Measured scan of single mutants.
Amino acid sequence: MKGKVVSYLAAKKYGFIQGDDGESYFLHFSELLDKKDEGKLVKGSMVHFDPTPTPKGLAAKAISLPLE
């Protein structure tokens, strides 16, 4: 699924993505496929991810940034 980063707290390594389906997904650095892309996780960045339901809500897994 595609989505847009709505927040990312680099110090805490987490944030949120708004998916194309309108839902909010929890984003964690550990799910970023290329850790070098962390600096690109800023508000408004477009990402691809696997939407995954968890006991705490919806989460983004296997997060990647589109090729530039």
Rank of each mutant, 00 (worst) to 15 (best):
M1P: 03
M1K: 07
M1R: 07
M1S: 06
M1L: 09
M1G: 07
M1E: 04
K2N: 10
G3M: 00
G3S: 00
G3D: 00
K4F: 14
K4V: 14
K4E: 08
K4W: 15
V5G: 01
V5L: 07
V5S: 01
V6H: 08
V6R: 14
V6M: 12
V6T: 12
S7N: 11
Y8L: 08
Y8A: 03
Y8T: 03
L9E: 13
A10P: 15
A10G: 09
A10W: 10
A10S: 12
A10M: 10
A11F: 10
A11S: 13
A11G: 11
A11R: 11
A11M: 09
A11I: 10
K12N: 09
K12Y: 11
K12G: 06
K12T: 12
K12C: 12
K13M: 06
K13C: 08
Y14C: 07
F16A: 04
F16R: 05
F16G: 01
F16S: 04
F16V: 06
I17C: 03
I17D: 00
I17T: 01
Q18E: 12
Q18V: 12
Q18D: 09
Q18A: 11
G19S: 04
G19P: 01
G19K: 01
G19F: 02
G19Q: 00
D20C: 14
D20N: 09
D20F: 10
D20V: 09
D21K: 03
D21S: 04
D21Q: 03
D21V: 02
D21C: 04
G22T: 04
G22R: 04
G22F: 05
G22H: 05
G22L: 05
E23Y: 13
E23T: 07
E23G: 08
S24L: 15
S24M: 15
S24G: 06
S24D: 06
S24A: 08
Y25V: 02
Y25W: 02
Y25G: 01
F26N: 01
F26G: 01
L27Q: 00
L27D: 00
L27V: 05
L27C: 03
L27R: 00
L27K: 00
L27S: 01
H28A: 12
H28Q: 07
H28R: 06
H28C: 08
H28V: 06
H28D: 07
H28K: 06
F29I: 11
F29V: 12
F29A: 12
F29P: 06
S30D: 10
S30I: 09
S30E: 09
S30P: 03
S30L: 09
S30W: 08
S30V: 08
E31V: 03
E31H: 07
E31N: 12
E31M: 07
L32K: 00
L32I: 06
L33E: 06
L33A: 07
L33Y: 05
L33T: 09
L33M: 10
L33D: 04
L33Q: 09
L33V: 12
L33W: 04
D34S: 08
D34M: 06
D34Y: 07
D34Q: 07
K35G: 07
K35D: 07
K35M: 08
K35I: 08
K36L: 10
K36I: 07
D37N: 08
D37M: 10
D37R: 05
D37E: 08
D37I: 08
D37K: 07
D37W: 08
E38H: 07
E38D: 04
E38P: 03
E38A: 10
E38W: 07
G39Q: 13
G39A: 14
G39M: 13
G39T: 12
G39W: 14
G39I: 14
K40H: 09
K40R: 14
K40L: 10
L41C: 03
L41I: 07
L41R: 01
L41G: 02
V42I: 12
V42A: 09
K43C: 10
K43R: 11
K43E: 08
G44E: 04
G44W: 04
G44M: 04
S45V: 15
S45H: 10
S45M: 15
S45C: 15
S45N: 10
S45F: 08
M46F: 11
M46G: 06
M46H: 12
V47N: 01
V47M: 03
H48D: 07
H48A: 11
H48W: 14
H48N: 10
H48C: 14
H48V: 14
F49N: 00
F49D: 01
D50W: 15
D50G: 06
P51C: 05
P51E: 02
P51S: 07
T52P: 02
P53N: 13
P53M: 15
P53Q: 13
T54H: 08
T54A: 07
T54V: 05
T54Q: 06
P55V: 10
P55S: 11
P55W: 09
K56I: 07
G57D: 02
G57H: 03
G57F: 04
G57R: 04
L58S: 05
L58R: 10
L58W: 11
L58V: 05
L58I: 05
L58Q: 06
L58P: 10
A59C: 11
A59E: 07
A59Q: 13
A60I: 01
A60S: 03
A60Q: 02
A60W: 00
K61S: 09
K61T: 11
K61H: 10
A62Y: 11
A62D: 08
A62T: 08
A62V: 06
A62S: 14
A62G: 11
I63Q: 01
I63G: 01
S64V: 11
L65F: 14
L65E: 03
P66N: 13
P66W: 15
P66S: 15
P66F: 15
P66I: 15
P66V: 15
P66A: 15
L67C: 12
L67V: 13
L67Y: 13
L67H: 12
E68A: 12
E68M: 12
E68H: 12
E68R: 11
E68L: 13
E68G: 12
